[in-house]
């Protein structure tokens, strides 16, 4: 564990806490893409198949349970919670995310570290996470104004993989046999997808204005 990875995990945790706060405090999921939440649920379920077979550390296991639990809880809320589901706007959350699932799985069948059930699902989860934010970013562009908590949620979610990139650079220089090129390339793509969001977020913060993404 290094400071970059720990900062990344904490930033990821904060993004989830901000999302949970928004949904539970406001009893509303306006501006949140259910499809992105479903994709994250698939990402964590596919990535943590080794949850009960490989014990790395208490921290690792607890964080995996938090990530799986929170993503499934949000999906449940947006689909079934009596009050929350009313604020879900199906008409703006129209990204066809099943293509992302199919495409990433196909890619994982061809590009993986080892052709085993777990490694193919692990690579699938890495590729899917890189594109999971697309429905959310498209929804924000469609819905124009972005409320503060949603904006902070996306900001932290984008920043966490940026910390992981620093972690991979650090590990590359400090560990001899370190080679996580699947994670690195996907992490770079994932962080790059947030580039324009980060830009408009910075502009709105500098001008102390409401965050607006151009349509």
């Amino acid at each position: 564990m290094n400071i970059f990875r720990f900062a990344g995990d904490m930033t990821h945790l904060i993004s989830i806490l901000v999302l949970l706060l928004k949904v539970y405090a406001t009893k509303s999921c306006s501006g949140i893409s259910l499809k992105t939440q479903e994709l994250y649920g698939i990402v964590f379920l596919a990535r943590y198949l080794d949850l009960f077979t490989d014990f790395i550390s208490v921290y690792n296991t607890v964080m995996k349970l938090v990530f799986i639990g929170s993503s499934l809880a949000i999906v449940w809320c947006m689909r079934f919670h009596r009050v929350v589901k009313r604020s879900y706007d199906r008409d703006v959350d129209t990204f066809r995310h099943y293509f992302l699932v199919g495409g990433c799985f196909l890619l994982a069948l061809f590009v993986h570290e080892k052709f085993s059930f777990r490694e193919v699902f692990w690579a699938f989860s890495i590729y899917l996470e890189a594109v999971a934010i697309l429905p959310q970013l498209i929804l924000l562009q469609r819905s124009g104004n972005v409320d503060n908590l949603t904006g902070q949620y996306v900001l932290f979610l984008g920043a966490y993989r940026g910390f992981y990139i620093l972690n991979w650079i650090y590990r590359y220089f400090t560990e001899d046999q370190f080679s996580r090129w699947i994670s690195c390339v996907s992490g770079l793509v994932q962080t790059a997808l947030y580039a324009d969001f980060f830009y408009y977020y910075f502009i709105s913060w500098k001008n102390n204005a409401k965050l607006k993404l151009p349509a």
Binding site: R47, D50, D54, F55, I56, M63, K64, E113, R180, S183
Partner: peptide, 10 residues
Amino acid sequence: SVDEDAHDEL
């Protein structure tokens, strides 16, 4: 038990 190729990152 941690086999050698277990992914230690979240």
